[in-house]
């Protein structure tokens, strides 16, 4: 079947199978930032925005994105830079495999709630797993980004 998607600001038409997942679709379109880290919707690595909302692309049918706006990290490079620099400054990128999905969730939080408390911030991002950092360096970067006093 055919779908039309606005992927990172570009309108594209593509032929897909009905059971194709949005994750596989965007990767096939060259958006390699989107990663698959699990089979069960638990890791958050595949997070992208569907009509500006962060969703799990591993579980979202590509067909359902028809006529919608799909945004991956490739499409928000400018917007992501400030936070990415904070992450890099803490050494919090580590292996980097969870970073794109994590950054997409952080930017979504910023839009939804520009001034979260530390608790709100952590809870919002709880669906983004990371095994390298133990989250503490990510927390430092987040505090800098959101202007929160570290506790």
């Amino acid at each position: 079947m055919k779908i039309t998607v606005t992927l990172n600001g570009k309108r594209i038409e593509a032929e897909i199978t009905p059971d194709m997942m949005l994750l596989d679709f965007v990767r096939s379109q060259g958006m390699k930032s989107v990663k698959r880290g699990c089979d069960t919707g638990n890791c958050g690595l595949c997070t992208l925005w569907l009509d500006d909302k962060p969703v799990l692309s591993c579980s979202t049918l590509a067909a359902r994105a028809n006529g919608k706006k799909v945004t991956t990290l490739e499409g928000v490079q400018e917007e992501a830079k400030e936070f990415s620099d904070f992450l890099a400054g803490e050494g919090a990128d580590q292996c980097g495999f969870c970073s794109p999905g994590f950054i997409m969730a952080v930017l979504a939080l910023k839009k939804e709630n520009p001034n979260p408390t530390a608790e709100e911030m952590k809870e919002y991002l709880a669906g983004n797993l990371c095994r390298c950092t133990g989250y503490q360096s990510q927390y430092r970067a987040l505090c800098k980004y959101f202007g929160i006093q570290e506790v």
């Binding site: 919707g41 638990n42 958050g44 997070t47 909302k53 962060p54 969703v55 799990l56 579980s59 979202t60 969730a105 979504a108 939080l109 809870e123 919002y124 991002l125 709880a126 669906g127 983004n128």
Partner: peptide, 12 residues
């Protein structure tokens, strides 16, 4: 609802 996996899961 807040404990169900994560925000992106609950958006999906």
């Amino acid at each position: 609802l807040r404990h169900i996996v994560g925000v992106q899961f609950r958006n999906t």
